[in-house]
Amino acid sequence: MKRNVGNVERLFRVLGGLVLITCAVMAPLSLAVRLGTFGVLGAYMLFSALAGSCLGYALMGRSTCPVEPRRG
């Protein structure tokens, strides 16, 4: 997949993902609710930050990456 997430946004996605994973562990809700909401969203945020690519951005044709990758 083509990289479409800039470095600053990747940092915020990592921080947001860690906060959501923490909520999945510590929230006073049932396990199914915690994993189904906070866990899945947190895992996606971390994955998209580490991969540098967001499926939603790809579907919309959007990119926050300032430089297009070189073709070689």
Rank of each mutant, 00 (worst) to 15 (best):
G61K: 06
G61E: 10
R10E: 03
F12A: 05
M26V: 15
T22E: 01
V5H: 06
C23H: 01
L46K: 05
C23K: 00
A32D: 12
C65N: 14
T37P: 04
G39R: 01
L15G: 05
V8H: 05
T64K: 12
T37V: 15
P66A: 00
L59W: 12
A24H: 04
G42R: 02
G36P: 02
G72C: 01
R10A: 09
G39A: 03
G72Q: 04
R71C: 02
L35F: 05
R13D: 00
A58S: 15
M45C: 12
A43W: 03
A32E: 13
A58K: 06
G6A: 12
S48M: 04
F12R: 04
G36A: 03
V14P: 01
R3V: 15
V19P: 09
S63P: 00
L29E: 11
R71T: 12
L20E: 10
G16M: 03
M45Q: 14
A32H: 02
Y44W: 12
S48Y: 07
V5K: 10
L55E: 12
L46A: 09
C23A: 08
M26G: 05
S48T: 15
P66E: 04
V19L: 13
A51Y: 10
T22A: 07
G17E: 07
M1T: 14
G42I: 03
V33G: 00
T37C: 05
S48V: 13
G61T: 10
G42L: 02
G72T: 03
M1L: 10
M60A: 13
S53I: 08
G72H: 01
S48D: 07
A27P: 06
L18W: 09
S53L: 00
R13G: 00
K2T: 13
F47T: 08
G56I: 08
N7V: 13
C54R: 09
F47D: 00
A27Y: 01
G6K: 11
L15Q: 01
P28K: 04
P28M: 06
T22V: 06
M45W: 08
M1Y: 05
R34N: 12
K2M: 10
G56C: 01
C65V: 06
L11W: 11
G52D: 04
G56P: 11
A51E: 14
L15Y: 01
S30H: 09
P66W: 00
L35V: 13
